[in-house]
Design a protein around this nucleic acid. Structure first.
Lengths: 194, 194, 194, 194
DNA sequence: CATGAATGAGCCTTCATTCAT
DNA sequence: CATGAATGAAGGCTCATTCAT
């Protein structure tokens, strides 16, 4: 095979890192683990990434890009339920298989690593909150702005919390993960005593 | 001062551990950090705790006990909103100040540490889910059981997710944390388009 | 039970030490192991013995005393074979069961511990060599003195080497340990081509 | 000097380990001692050896190889005395100077370390016993097989025991170590009263 | 005398990172 | 660019020994 381009090499390392991180967690993973998995020398990793933390950051960004790539363009539908379902569907279905394990590791480190947390906020949470808030303001003009702000946070928190519970192995969530967006949309719109 | 009793010594170590863990995170904390903070010798820590992981476990259990201590007895009120508000209020207000930082560290490790996760599940998640499910089944007899199961998970996920967002420093949540239970209860019962 | 006398207490510790040393070896044994076995506190050990090494020394001396106690007085028999058999019989049968394990541990440490080695030399090897040499000189007046000196060393070395091989589990030695003195006496006196 | 090859580096560490082990014994030797002696970093030791025990094992194997290297090929001489002298000569002269101290340490640990003991048995004791037994059976067809088995063990035990006594500093053995094989061969063949 | 909690030096081992080739 | 041997700081943990009660 031809020599890989720098981009390919970087991607190769990133993929290896993602795989090993997902399997063993951040702290239990050694640079050597990653290098072996990528079939390169330990030192080579440092030609493409500053250090281990930067590698995790990059893995996170890559995961984010992959997720954002197939993010539906904000459909200008008027139907609240449809929009909400889409908004829920995306994060809930974005994580599949390996990604769940990786998500767990990333969140774990994020809780404790300021850089990673800032990145997450800036690239994931804030845009999502802003977008959702904007949309709901328009869709529910009679609602109190604060209510909408809190609702948006409640929903995004719910998504993160459910994902964590899923990764913890909750059997009910595992059995109904596919239809979860529908149920949640109902719940959120109609409420429990609907 | 008189010699501390074993319980006091244990508590002293536990408190030091909680403080340092909360400040530096689990992995960045060394046994020496904890010992110094507790003004004892390194080896003394091991007279009271098997190892570092056990120390984290104990910190978690201590936190749990503190939280559970002022858990309201399951009030047999018929009012769904009141009950729901209480159910939300408790976990959301249980964590105060230092505890948030500690919570972050514990959750972080839980995501990656099987023992800790099992403990969390067994002592926190499962009881909460079971209790809530039982209550809602009675309070909302017309609802589909599955809907209730999912709703319970959605709410508990929401609580965890909101807490995480809070620890991440979200200003809106910080400004309205006290009234959050009310808003959430409304949202959950009435729904967004209520 | 009444308070043990100092001697009893000392013996109690010694016995515990012997047992644990025999089981786990010197270095793997902790003072706590011994104290627990003797059902006393760790610190008490130090009231009766200077330190861990002194404990091993004392164990060795105790073992030596036990062995020497039933040492046959140098029978003034003229029969070389009988005397030789007795001389072989004693060390070979002195070690029984637990003693073999302890012997192994003591020899192991002796090889590396100057104090213990000196003690062994002074109390075991030297007297045995001297006694044997004296006897053989009288019994075999025609033999070259050097030959006798070397023979004495060869025999005592043989005893030690065979004992080590026995503790290593050699099946042949295990099967014929009881009759070994006879065979050896024959061998030594008559030689192989006798 | 040019960079050492991996083999040279390994040998360098091995030699350092042998020297320090021989001087201080296994347990008193630290990895740092060895690393310093080899003028390398502590961690480097672990690039070549799994752990401290493996290092001792390797030292033993190296010593064994060095000894076996100049092992005389089993001469098909008919003369029992010549063969026996050769058989004795080899182990007794194999250990020279430093080796005696190292031998002491290895034997010491062997008495207490199962792995090392198994290795010793498999590579040293068993082959020696088997070879000797085979030879003597042919050379002394009239002898009882059991007698031969025991004699073989007696002789090999004698060699080990004498070596230990030598390392213990026995002056007689030191003075006559070179001619010892001759004396022993005489003794073994002719017997004491020959 | 006895206790056993406390001490703290010290050890083995890991692993992120560097750099000469 | 790639390599991977070498580094050495750092950390968890053990355990002989002490000493206040």
């Amino acid at each position: 095979m031809p020599d890989p381009t720098p981009e390919e090499r970087r991607a190769q390392i990133l993929e290896a890192a993602a795989t090993v991180f997902a399997t063993k967690g951040f702290h239990r993973t050694t640079i050597r683990d990653i290098a072996k998995h990528a079939r390169i020398a330990d030192g080579t990793v440092y030609l493409y990434f500053e250090n281990k933390a930067a590698l995790l950051l990059a893995v996170f960004q890559h995961m984010r890009d992959a997720i954002m790539a197939n993010a539906a363009p904000p459909a200008p539908t008027t139907d609240l339920r449809t929009v909400l379902r889409a908004m829920l569907s995306h994060p809930l279905t974005a994580l599949r298989d390996d990604n769940f394990a990786l998500f767990r590791v990333v969140v774990s480190e994020m809780l404790v690593n300021d850089d990673l947390r800032a990145l997450y906020h800036q690239h994931i949470v804030q845009p999502a909150l802003d977008g959702a808030e904007l949309y709901l303001r328009a869709a529910l003009p009679t609602q109190d702005p604060l209510t909408i702000q809190l609702a948006v946070r409640a929903v995004s928190g719910m998504v993160m919390g459910l994902t964590i519970q899923y990764t913890f192995g909750d059997p009910v969530l595992h059995a109904h993960w596919d239809t979860l967006p529908d149920h949640l949309a109902d719940l959120i719109i109609t409420g429990l005593d609907g």
